[in-house]
Amino acid sequence: MNIFPFFRNDFRLLWRHGFAAAYLVVALVYAAVLSALPQTWADAAMPVLAWSDAAFFCFFFAGASVCLDLAQGTFRALFVSPLRPWTYFLVKAANLSILSFGMAVAVSLSSRGLEFRPLPLAVSVLAGGSPSSLIGAALALRLRTVNRFLVGTIPVFLILSLPVLRYAAEPWIPGWLASLSRWTPTEGSFLWARAAYAAVPGGELTAGAAAALAWTAAASVLILGPAARAAEGE
């Protein structure tokens, strides 16, 4: 099966539903905020903003996109065709990751010119976008509507944010919370986002990539798989 037409149409839908425009608006806001900050502050904020492009936006937009499919009833028609759920979710995650990468690059260019490393940034987007998209999609399959998704995912959102909390306030948060943040699905992505703008030890980056891979696999098998099977049977 040629998945390119689905890839293209999913991107078209992201555009027509306004997700791509939302990325654009947020990128402009980020750029404006960074330009207003002193350079040291902007440099400190840059990894957080770049990381949030994948970790947060992939999470919310994958969920919203699945909710839209549920509302339009297109799942039934999609899954009686040879298209399999994993292809569907892969395409959604890939498209959102591409948008996130574009946004992160644009924001980086606006703040630092060419003084950033695109490869770690790309790894950060992949490492954050993959598990976040899959978890967002799986939760959307369970929660089913955009409203319930926005409210019901607040606890997950807070957990995904823990690496940033540690980054910004490690001396002031309890040790257990700092430790917990190292085991979140977005920790690996955040390490790579920092590596795009500053030196991070190779061992930490390897561990971060492995953790992101493990989270992606776990999210696929343990969360998304059952949710997709349940949705397919409904």
Binding site: L13, Q72, R76
Partner: peptide
């Protein structure tokens, strides 16, 4: 297998032709 459900379900923001081409692309 081909299936038409009682309540038609399409991507509302795609045109009729785009919908048809998209779903057709899943088949050999």
């Amino acid at each position: 297998v081909g299936a038409a459900f009682e309540f038609p379900c399409f991507y509302q923001k795609l045109t009729g032709l785009e919908n048809l081409e998209l779903f057709a692309s899943f088949y050999p």
